[in-house]
Design a protein around this nucleic acid. Structure first.
Length: 887
RNA sequence: GGGCGGCUAGCUCAGUUGGUCAGAGCACCUGGUUUACACCCAGGGGGUCGGGGGUUCGAGCCCCUCGCCGCCCA
C-alpha cells in the first residue's frame, strides 16, 4: 500500500541514481532511432544554479524526456563554460579577501593554477544541482569549454578564420574596462542613465580675436582634443573654418574644422573633438586626418601625453582639476545639469573608456550574412517567432567583434610575434616556429600573444565542438544540427547569433533547427531577482521545500509566450498539491484492486464510463503530444492538470466508485483494468514534467496485475492512442450525467438544502435516449448527487424545485427545506440569464445581413441556441408561476 | 530617437484562422467527518477585455490613433 504522501526528499536522489546508473540518459544506440539533440547552454563552471537555470533546464528536460519516450535517440549534451571574465573576477576577489597578493604580483602561471584549483573545488556544484532538478543529461558526454578537445577546436577556428581574413588585428577604439584592464565587446557594455553636467568651455582663438564655446560631459578629455568642429553650413562659424584655437591648459593650437557631425542645434553648434576617447570623435578624426592623442593609461589615469601636473591623476580627479582650471582662467561659461547615458562594464560596473588599442577582430558582417539568410529561409526557427526580429535587427547592423581580452583565464590567442613584430597565427607553437623559420630563413625567438579570447568565442562553437569537431565523429554525423536550443533572450546576441555564424561557417549547416526563447523569471511582483534586492528565490531551497516536481511543473505551467514569469511560492504549493492529488488517486485505485489486465485493449471496453475515460485519455494524449511538439509548455501543464484532476479524479474515479463497490463483477473487473490502464497513460504523459513522482508511482504499481514489460518509466514508450477510441455516444451519456449532477448540486447548494437531506431526483421531461441514460445510471447519479433514488414522474409535484439539463427537466422535491424567497431568486436569476441570451441571439438572427453573410453552420448554431434557451426559459417561468401560486 | 513586448476578474495569466471566448489557477465568500486526498470535496460572487475611432452582418482577436508600463538598441 502506498504511503499517504509522496516524499520527495528520500525518493528524488534514489530515483536519480537509478536512472543515471541504468544508462537511460544516453541516447539509444538503435541506429534506426531518429535523433533528437539539445546542447545545454553551458552555465559558468564555478557558478551555482539560480532560478533562471531551473526554468531553462526544466524545459530542456521536458523535451528530452518526451522525445526519449517517443523512441528517439535523445541526446542532451551537458557541460560548463569557463566564463573568462566572471570566473577570473571571482578568484581575484577571493585572493583579495584572503589577503593574498594581486594576480599581477602573483604572475600568470600561478594565478591560472589558482583558478583551476577553484574550478576543481567548485566545478561540480552546478552539475550536481542540475541533478537535483532531475535533468536527464548524458553526463558521459559532459564537456568544458577549456578542455583539450574544445581548446583544439578554438585554435582551429581562430587560425582558419585568420587565414580566410575573417579575423584580423586592428588598432581602433575599443570599449576599455579600466577595472579589469581589458577590452570588452559592444554588447558587454551597458548604457546607464545618470545625472551629469554639460560644462561649457570657451576656447580662445589663436590670434586672440575671440573665442569659441564648446560643451562636454567629460571635461578631462579636452586634454586630448585635436580639433573643434562646426557644421559646414553654420553661418555663425563659417569664417572661422581653417583657423585655430589655442587649447587651454595644454596650450596646443588645434584647428577649427568643418564636419557634419557638429549639430548646429546643439549647444553653441561647435563641438570639441577628441578622436582617441570618443567613438563619434574617432570617426571625425579619421575623416579629417586628425592626430589621435591618447591621454589615458590602462587604469584610466592621465598618461605622459597630458600636462605634467595632470599625469598620474585618476580620470575623475583630472575632471575636477580641468574644471577648476577653466574657472580660474575665466573660461568656464556655463554649467548645465543633464541626464545622459554613460557606458558601464556589465561585469565590473565601472565606467567604460573608449580607448585606442590593438585588438583582434572577427569580421562579423561577413559571417552574419549566411546566418541572416538561414533564419529568413526558416532553416532555423525562433519560438516565439517574434524574437527573429530582435535577431535580424542586430545581425543586420552588426559591427566587428572584438574577441581579444587582456585577461588570463581563457583560450590564449594562437598568435606568435617575431622579433620584428611579424605575426604568425598557427594552431601550435611548433607550427608557428616552423612558419617563422620559413619566413626568416632561420629560427627566431617567438613571443605568444598575451591575450585570451572572449568567452563567447568558444561558446559560439559549442554545438559542434562538444561533439568532437574538428574530428569527423559519429556524434557530429548523428546529432548535428541539433534539434532545439532552449535559452534566454538576453543572450540572443552574445550566444545564439555567434553559434549561428560559426555553425554555418564551419559545419556548413545551422546549429539548430529551432530556438526556443524562454522567459525571464522574476519575483512575484515582477522585479528582476538580484542579490542586492534580496528577492532571490533559490531553486534548491524550493526543491527542498516542495520537491523538484512541483518546481518543474510550476515553471512549465508559467512558460507562455510572455517575456517574464512572476514566480510565487503559492503557485508552487498549488502544483505540489497537484502531485499529491495524483498520488492519492493512485492510492485509491490500489485500494480498490485496480490492476493491469493481461491483454487489455482499450478499444474493447464495454462499460460506458470506461469507454468515456478511454476516449478522454486518447484525446489528452493527442493534445499533449501536439503541445510538446510545439513547445507549448503552458498548454502541456494546464492540459495535464485539468485532465488528471478535473476529469480523472473528479469524475471518472467518483463515477467509478459505485461500480467498484457494486456486484456487477464483469463491470467491476473492467473498471479496475481501465482505471489502471488510464493511470499508466497518465504517468507517462506527466513524466516529462514530473519525473520523480511519476517514476515512483510507476515503480510502486509495477506489481499490480499484468507486468508492463516496459522497464523504468523514463524509457517507457510514449502513448499513442487513436482518435477512434473517442466514443461520441459515451461522451454524450457521461456528459449528461455530469451535467445533471452538477446542476443538481448547484440547486441544492443555492437553496441551502441540508447536507444530510436525501430527496429523490425526479425526472420529469426527457427524450427517450436521456431517460434511458438516467435509468441505466440511477445508482451512480444517486450516490454522486446524494439523492435517495431517481423517480420518473409525469409532472413536478407541488413545491418541487425544477431545473433544466440539456433540455431535460429534472426536479428535486425539497420544499420543506427551502426558503421560498431563495428559490424565487434562483429562478429569477436563471430566467434572466436565459432572457439575455435570447435577446442577444435574437438580435443576431433578426439581422438579415447576418443570416445572409454568416456561415450556414454559424447561423444554425445560433438557431439551436435560441430554441434551447427559449425552452429552458419557458420551463423555469412555468415553475416560477407555480411557486407564486403556492404563496 | 529607433525597435520590440505588454495593458483581459482582487492577483498571476490563457484566449489558435474574427462567430457559446469572456476562461484557468490563486485569493475571497458559503457549506461539508462523502472510509484516495483538508496538500481535500461541493457551491458561489467578481471583468463595458487600457481610452477613442474604423473595417465587418459580427472584434478581446484585424486597421488607425492616443495613453500608460517594461525591455532592447542608439
Amino acid at each position: 500500500m502506498l504511503e499517504k504522501n509522496f516524499d520527495p526528499k528520500t525518493a528524488e536522489s534514489r530515483l536519480y541514481a537509478m536512472w543515471e546508473a541504468s544508462g537511460a540518459f544516453a541516447p539509444t544506440s538503435d541506429p534506426a532511432a531518429e535523433p533528437f539533440s539539445i546542447v545545454i547552454p553551458p552555465p559558468n563552471v564555478t557558478g551555482s544554479l539560480h532560478i533562471g537555470h531551473a526554468l531553462n533546464n526544466t524545459l530542456q528536460d521536458v523535451l528530452i524526456r518526451f522525445e526519449r519516450m517517443r523512441g528517439k535517440a535523445a541526446l542532451w549534451l551537458p557541460g560548463t563554460d569557463h566564463a573568462g571574465i566572471a570566473t577570473q573576477m571571482v578568484v581575484e576577489r577571493q585572493l583579495a579577501a584572503a589577503g593574498n597578493v594581486s594576480r599581477r604580483d602573483m604572475g600568470r602561471e600561478d594565478f591560472i593554477a589558482k583558478v583551476w584549483e577553484w574550478k576543481a573545488q567548485s566545478g561540480g556544484t552546478i552539475t550536481n544541482q542540475l541533478r537535483r532538478l532531475g535533468a536527464s543529461c548524458d553526463w558521459s558526454r559532459e564537456r568544458f569549454t577549456l578542455d583539450d578537445g574544445l581548446s583544439a577546436a578554438v585554435r582551429k577556428v581562430f587560425v582558419t578564420l585568420h587565414k580566410q581574413k575573417l579575423i584580423y588585428r586592428d588598432k581602433r577604439l575599443v570599449n576599455w574596462d579600466p577595472h579589469f584592464q581589458t577590452a570588452i565587446s559592444d554588447i558587454e557594455v551597458e548604457q546607464r542613465e545618470v545625472d551629469g553636467h554639460y560644462w561649457h568651455f570657451a576656447y580662445p582663438l589663436e590670434d586672440g580675436s575671440g573665442e569659441i564655446v564648446v560643451a562636454t560631459t567629460r571635461p578631462e578629455t579636452m586634454l586630448g582634443d585635436t580639433a573643434v568642429a562646426v557644421h559646414p553650413t553654420d553661418e555663425r562659424y563659417k569664417h572661422l573654418i581653417g583657423r585655430a584655437v589655442r587649447l587651454p591648459i595644454v596650450g596646443r593650437p588645434i584647428p577649427i574644422i568643418a564636419d557634419e557631425y557638429a549639430d548646429p542645434e546643439k549647444g553653441s553648434g561647435a563641438v570639441k573633438i577628441t578622436p582617441a576617447h570618443d567613438f563619434n570623435d574617432y570617426q571625425v578624426g579619421k575623416r579629417n586626418n586628425l592626430p589621435m592623442i591618447n591621454i589615458l593609461t590602462d587604469d584610466a589615469k592621465i598618461n605622459e601625453n597630458g600636462p605634467k601636473d595632470y599625469q598620474g591623476l585618476d580620470r575623475f580627479a583630472a575632471r575636477k582639476k580641468v574644471i577648476a582650471a577653466f574657472e580660474e582662467l575665466g573660461l568656464l561659461r556655463e554649467v548645465e545639469k543633464t541626464r545622459h547615458a554613460v557606458p558601464h562594464g556589465d561585469r565590473s560596473g565601472s565606467v567604460i573608456e573608449p580607448y585606442l588599442t590593438d585588438q583582434w577582430y572577427v569580421d562579423a558582417k561577413t559571417l552574419a550574412q549566411p546566418a541572416i539568410k538561414a533564419v529568413e529561409e526558416g532553416r532555423t526557427v525562433f519560438e516565439p517567432r517574434h524574437w527573429e526580429k530582435t535577431y535580424f535587427e542586430w545581425m543586420r547592423n552588426i559591427e566587428p567583434w572584438c574577441v581579444s581580452r587582456q585577461l588570463w583565464w581563457g583560450h590564449r590567442i594562437p598568435a606568435w610575434y617575431g622579433p620584428d613584430g611579424k605575426i604568425f597565427v598557427e594552431e601550435t607553437e611548433a607550427a608557428a616556429q616552423a612558419a617563422a623559420r620559413e619566413h626568416y630563413g632561420r629560427d627566431e625567438p617567438l613571443r605568444q600573444d598575451e591575450d585570451v579570447l572572449d568567452t563567447w568565442f568558444s561558446s559560439g562553437l559549442w554545438p559542434f565542438s562538444t561533439m568532437g569537431w574538428p574530428e569527423k565523429t559519429s556524434d557530429l554525423e548523428r546529432f548535428y544540427p541539433t534539434s532545439t536550443l532552449v535559452t534566454g533572450f538576453d543572450i540572443i546576441f552574445f550566444w545564439v547569433a555567434r553559434m549561428m555564424m560559426m555553425g554555418l561557417h564551419f559545419m556548413g549547416d545551422v546549429p539548430f533547427d529551432r530556438v526556443f526563447i524562454n522567459a525571464l523569471v522574476r519575483d512575484s511582483k515582477g522585479a528582476k531577482m538580484s542579490k542586492s534586492k534580496g528577492n532571490v528565490m533559490d531553486p534548491l531551497e524550493l526543491v527542498d521545500q516542495y520537491g523538484a516536481d512541483a518546481l518543474r511543473f510550476t515553471l512549465t505551467a508559467m512558460s507562455g509566450q510572455a517575456r517574464d514569469i512572476k514566480l510565487s511560492t503559492q503557485r508552487i504549493e498549488g502544483y505540489r498539491n497537484f502531485g499529491t492529488k495524483l498520488w492519492n488517486a493512485t492510492r485509491f485505485t490500489e485500494m480498490n484492486g485496480c490492476a493491469r489486465a493481461e491483454g487489455f485493449d482499450p478499444a474493447q471496453v464495454k462499460n460506458t464510463l470506461n469507454r468515456w475515460i478511454v476516449g478522454e485519455t486518447a484525446r489528452t494524449v493527442q493534445s499533449m503530444t501536439k503541445a510538446l511538439d510545439a513547445c507549448a509548455f503552458d498548454d502541456v501543464a494546464n492540459g495535464l492538470y485539468r485532465f488528471i484532476w478535473n476529469t480523472y479524479c473528479d469524475w471518472y474515479v467518483e463515477l467509478a466508485k459505485p461500480i467498484l463497490n457494486g456486484s456487477d463483477e464483469a463491470a467491476k473487473a473492467e473498471t479496475q483494468a481501465t482505471a489502471a490502464w488510464a493511470l499508466d497513460v497518465i504517468l507517462k504523459m506527466l513524466h516529462p514534467v514530473m519525473p520523480f513522482l511519476t517514476e515512483e508511482l510507476w515503480a510502486q504499481t509495477a506489481d499490480l496485475g499484468a507486468p508492463r514489460g516496459e522497464g523504468m518509466l523514463i524509457t517507457a514508450r510514449w502513448p499513442d492512442l487513436a482518435q477512434s477510441l473517442v466514443d461520441p455516444a459515451a461522451e454524450a451519456e457521461i456528459g449528461l450525467i455530469i451535467a445533471a449532477v452538477s446542476e443538481g448540486r448547484s440547486v441544492k447548494a443555492e437553496l441551502n438544502v441540508p447536507h444530510s437531506a436525501r430527496p429523490p431526483l425526479l425526472v420529469i421531461e426527457a427524450t427517450d435516449a436521456q431517460r434511458a441514460v438516467f435509468e441505466a445510471n440511477a445508482a451512480v447519479i444517486a450516490q454522486t448527487l446524494r439523492v435517495s433514488e431517481l423517480q420518473f414522474v409525469a409532472s413536478a409535484p407541488e413545491g418541487a424545485i425544477p431545473f433544466v439539463v440539456n433540455g431535460a427537466t429534472l426536479a428535486l422535491p425539497v420544499a420543506e427545506f427551502i426558503d421560498l424567497a431563495a428559490e424565487r431568486a434562483r429562478l429569477a436569476k436563471e430566467i434572466a440569464g436565459h432572457a439575455s441570451d435570447i435577446a442577444h441571439v435574437n438580435k443576431k438572427l433578426g439581422n438579415p445581413a447576418f443570416v445572409a453573410n454568416a456561415k450556414e453552420e454559424v447561423v444554425e448554431e445560433n438557431r439551436e441556441r435560441l430554441a434551447e434557451s427559449e425552452a429552458a426559459k419557458a420551463k423555469l417561468e412555468h415553475a416560477l408561476s407555480l411557486l407564486e401560486a403556492v404563496v
